[in-house]
Design a protein around this nucleic acid. Structure first.
Length: 355
DNA sequence: AAAACGTGGCT
DNA sequence: TAGCCAAGTTT
């Protein structure tokens, strides 16, 4: 592929984008000026390893509650962590606050890829995306969509992740000097709606003509990926400690790094730090079993047994807080513990029905 | 450099 | 349904 056809690919994609761009909340309104860097940055962080559908409500909630980066910088850590609950990869929320505070200190977002890359939570992808989309800089934006589109377009047979340097070189070659932000978003929209992982819709593709994988007959075969390791299944135990006289449950704050770091949680037996939990709780009990919940994390699956204590002796509980059970939805529990809470409450309902 | 780090939707 | 996959970053 020579330089002139690389230019042609960008033109085809931009023409397609002018007609088919998805209408997403963090994109500038048609006809308006450049999008707000705060909204671009926030959306890009939320979208890391996360689908558009999952992000939409969180983006609306965050921008309603904190409409500027200064407002977010001034927010309390626990408020932001609770607002992020359920979205996953909680290091993103911790980095989000650190980044907002750094930007507030600087007075504005850096407007170069290099400057952005130095902020917490902005890696190669996000720095390039914000530089291109919010500041119109030419930057080579490579995410999983771009990897897929480029792998197919140029029929790159080497498996990921080894093919990343070759993919980046090709992405660089087709990235235009003008409208680099639109080009990046065009590639991502194409990957999300046309050049999909399974069942690519080549008949709708604006760059089907130059696509080598399509010519070879089986575009879905690419990109080739290295095989994944099987997930181990761990056992753990969590504890629902209820103070009956006030209808409150005991919640703790998890350590600031590691699994679900910084999030509110039910007390547990340390399953996150070992292959399995110790089985020990923060109280002597007696415990009643409420059953178990299953949850799959990125690198292991967990079977979490839930034990319940209802009583009035709470010796040795340590750090934590009593939380009103009727407002448990507002505690900002990550999904694993939200499931466990649901189980405890379902058990309570069952027992009431039995009585 | 390989592993840690969430979750929900789709097939 | 069990596995695959998503607008990756950090250590």
């Amino acid at each position: 592929m020579d330089a002139s056809s690389d230019t042609a690919i960008a033109a085809l994609l931009l023409d397609w984008y002018d007609v088919h761009a998805r209408d997403l909340p963090w994109r500038a309104l048609p006809g308006s000026s450049s999008p707000d860097p705060y909204r671009v940055w926030l959306s890009e962080v939320m979208l890391q390893q996360t689908t558009v559908a999952a992000v939409k409500d969180y983006f609306a909630a965050f921008t309603t509650r904190w409409s500027t980066v200064e407002a977010l910088a001034a927010a309390a850590d626990e408020e932001v962590m609770a607002a992020w609950a359920g979205l996953g990869y909680y290091a993103r929320a911790r980095n989000l606050m650190a980044c907002a505070r750094e930007v507030a200190r600087l007075g504005r977002f850096p407007d170069t890829e290099e400057g952005l890359r130095a902020l917490p939570g902005l890696g190669a992808y996000t720095a390039a995306a914000v530089a291109a989309i919010a500041f119109g800089r030419r930057a080579v934006v490579v995410d999983a969509n771009v990897e897929r589109v480029v792998s197919r377009l140029f029929a790159i047979e080497e498996p990921l992740p080894g093919s990343r340097p070759a993919i980046r070189a090709k992405a660089d070659a087709i990235t235009p000097d003008a409208r680099a932000g639109d080009f990046a978003q065009a590639m991502m929209d194409l990957g999300a709606t046309v050049c999909t992982s399974r069942n690519p819709r080549c008949l709708l593709c604006p760059i089907a003509a130059p696509c080598k994988a399509r010519r070879m007959g089986d575009p879905a075969r690419l990109p080739v990926k290295a095989p994944k390791k099987a997930k181990a299944v761990r056992q753990g135990r969590a504890f629902w400690i209820e103070r009956e006289e006030t209808s409150e449950v005991w919640l703790v704050r998890r350590p600031g790094s590691g699994m679900l770091g910084g999030m509110r949680a039910l007390p547990d037996d340390g399953w996150a730090a070992r292959a399995d939990g110790s089985g020990n709780g923060p109280l002597a009990g007696p415990w009643e079993s409420a059953g178990k919940v299953g949850h799959v994390f990125t690198h292991f699956a967990l079977e979490l047994n839930l034990s319940v204590y209802l009583g009035d002796r709470f010796d040795g509980l340590g750090e934590g807080e009593w939380w009103p059970i009727d407002r448990i939805d507002e505690a900002g529990l990550p999904t694993l513990f939200a499931k466990a809470a649901r189980l405890a409450l379902a058990m309570a309902v069952d027992e009431k029905e039995d009585a």
